[in-house]
Design a binder for these strands. Structure first.
Lengths: 169, 169
DNA sequence: AGGTTCATGTAACTCGTTACATGATTCA
DNA sequence: TGAATCATGTAACGAGTTACATGAACCT
């Protein structure tokens, strides 16, 4: 799975601008995918060149012009191809867990700081997922709901471990 | 956090070969970090050039020679520096959750296949973590135990959601 | 006056992956 | 006989990040 596949999937649901795609990444996909402007815009240009998407210019007042991208038949085909490729293993890169692993080289205060920070951070992420879920779940497919439930369950279980074991005496 | 920081941390615990470092990645760090030969060997050469580690050749019978790397004072300093940098946000890249999100474009059979496969896969990973924990927990620091507990809790909670909601009627 | 939102983009860089190459020994 | 383990490595490639640049409007 690469950015291009995902972008195609998003545009397949709805015509969108690069800016909007990044918004989707940062909100809806936040717990299982990352993507920024530096990856989205070049991908969009490439997809356009390949005939997977078409660009439409929308002139706006008081706001900069924008380019709305729509998927083509070829793009739909390409997206279906992605869905048929074999599943790539999940990748987690956690600097936090790395510091836990090497925690003996830190002072108690430093560790406590890192853990407290992580708890607050994960609580915020959980809250964001929860409110997203509450707001959109009636418009989500069954599987999209499961996707969210998994994110929520992960954050909750991690928070539980941290709150039960993360206090250094 | 990059490979070099982590490699330095591993060598700091114990002198090791590149091969052994990859083994650590694949077993002990499996739930929060990835690294393969293609990243470890070049990193080791770079660290040696920079004077962070020293190489010692060990001649073996019936096995290829190996290079055991040890950390230097400079390397220890460098590792401490990493531990003082600000915490990088966790990154999760999940092709599985992406397919859940776009599941409506798949047949029920295809989805069921993906979910069943994921359940079996995560069960295997959980089992590996559990047996690792059982075997080593008495030799782990408190924080290393927490690190493992978080991995275990995550897999368990995800499996619970999948088993409760992952059956398509 | 200054931060945020909307909106696009690129060039340089860094990092990691993939695919290849080698080769003896041990286990089934 | 053939797969797995131990053991090292590189070259080419691919992907994504970072840092930069621009600019109007709106909110506080």
């Amino acid at each position: 799975m690469k950015s291009e596949d995902v972008i195609l999937g998003i545009i397949n649901e709805n015509s969108r601008t690069g800016y909007e795609i990044v918004e989707v990444f940062k909100t809806i996909f936040s717990h299982f995918f990352d993507g920024s402007y530096g990856s989205v815009y070049p991908a969009l240009h490439k997809l356009e060149q390949q005939g997977m998407v078409t660009k439409q210019t929308v002139v706006q007042e008081g706001k900069p012009n924008k380019f709305v991208y729509s998927i083509t038949a070829q793009g739909k085909e390409q997206f279906k191809n992605y869905l048929k490729t074999s599943l790539q293993p999940e990748k987690v890169k956690s600097d936090f867990l790395m510091r836990m692993y090497f925690g003996e080289y830190l002072t108690k205060e430093e560790i406590q700081d890192i853990i407290s920070h992580e708890i607050r951070h994960k609580e915020a992420l959980l809250e964001q997922l929860n409110s997203n879920y509450d707001h959109w779940h009636s418009k989500m497919s069954r599987l999209q709901q499961v996707c969210y439930q998994i994110g929520i369950a992960r954050y909750q279980s991690e928070l539980q471990v941290l709150k039960e074991n993360g206090i250094i005496e």
